[in-house]
Amino acid sequence: MKIDAFCHLLPAAYAERLFAIDDSPVARNIQKRVSGVPALVDMDERFRVMDEFGSDYRQIVNTAAPPLDDLGPAARTAELARIANDGMADLVSRHPDRFAGFCAAVALDDVDNAIAETERAFDELGAVGVQIYTHVGGGPMDQERFFPFYEAVARRGNKMIQVHPCRDSSWSDYKTEERSKFEIWWTLGWEYDLSAFMSRLVFSGVFERLPDIKILIHHGGAMIPHFAGRVGAGWDQLGTRTPADQSDDIAGYPLTQRPIDYFKKFYVDTAYFGAGDAMRTAIRFFGVDHTLFASDTPFDPEKGPGYIRDTIANLQEMDILDDDDREQIYHRNVTDLLRLDGAATRSNALEDEVLS
């Protein structure tokens, strides 16, 4: 059994509304990108892709980037969230053999509305979590105004926050330039975004204040596991590199553990696009118990199956894992984390039906 815990799609009504937006450069960009990835919208094509991996392969889905906050005024983004969540809930309800759940879309340009929509998605639609991005309007996610949102999710206990990066080419690579070149903003910038998001949440004390919060970081925790020495011994010396007149830059919530210990409280996925050595490093850093199988489908060159196939191959070949470890990563961790009791039941029922 494999539950792919971070997959993207666009429900039909949401895609129609998204494609009707004509006053947003961000919307035009996703309109162009989606047109080349049919499995985002066409469920027949998506199911054809999924069939390669057998009846025990299922997905937890969310909407594809960009963040709703970037698509216009608050009234529009709130409408888009409702349409997206209603659409994902409908797909999960009609295809439980394909989808194990969905993570709600929210627009954090209005925190109160985001909390209300999150709670509606949890209580009325059965969402297993909520997807957010690494910044809102270019601002950091450790601002105190976002704390009530984190608190609202944390108190549910069995719901997770998925975190996706979101910078674009307007984030230049150098101070002297106006735009990022060669898609560096995507290849490297997104991983910096995720790493900075994690760091700001750690030093803002989110795990001290909300010890039950469950945050899943996309792309295997990005840069953090690969710079463990700097995150560990380096940040143990926080303040030694900062001049006295810049002391406000290192003022954060009082922590009771080493910074590196808080980073290991994040959950991460296996969306490494076939980079097995990088995945191995992440699993060693965060641990098997904090690693969830995920592929980031359907954004591979094949528009669907490639990253799923490569991720499974990486896990099967990884000599630091035994069969029990693989079972944990493939489905047990996410099932336990989100209390997906129905997931195993439906899978077993399908298996019994096939056998009979």
Rank of each mutant, 00 (worst) to 15 (best):
V136F: 12
A196P: 07
F53D: 09
F146L: 11
I213A: 07
S347F: 04
P254K: 12
R209E: 07
T134N: 04
A12K: 14
D109N: 14
D269M: 09
R94D: 03
I250W: 01
D70Q: 08
V231D: 03
L10S: 12
R76P: 04
G232A: 15
M318A: 10
K159F: 03
H219K: 02
W185I: 04
L201M: 08
R46Y: 05
I83L: 10
T256C: 08
R209T: 08
K32C: 03
E351Y: 10
L210Q: 02
L350N: 14
G306T: 03
H8D: 07
R280E: 15
V288G: 10
F47G: 08
S35G: 13
R179A: 04
D289P: 00
D173M: 07
D319G: 01
D277W: 08
S356E: 11
T134R: 08
M141L: 11
F147P: 00
V34E: 11
A244N: 14
T242H: 03
E178F: 12
V136L: 04
S247E: 05
S199F: 00
T311N: 06
G234D: 04
D110S: 06
V128K: 11
F6K: 13
A127P: 03
Y253D: 05
D109I: 00
Q59T: 00
A105T: 05
L68V: 05
F293T: 09
R241D: 14
Y262P: 05
F207A: 04
V106A: 09
A104P: 00
D289A: 13
S169G: 02
V34N: 10
I60W: 03
N29D: 09
E353N: 06
F149W: 08
L40F: 01
L10G: 03
A313S: 14
A228E: 09
E16N: 12
Y262V: 02
G306F: 03
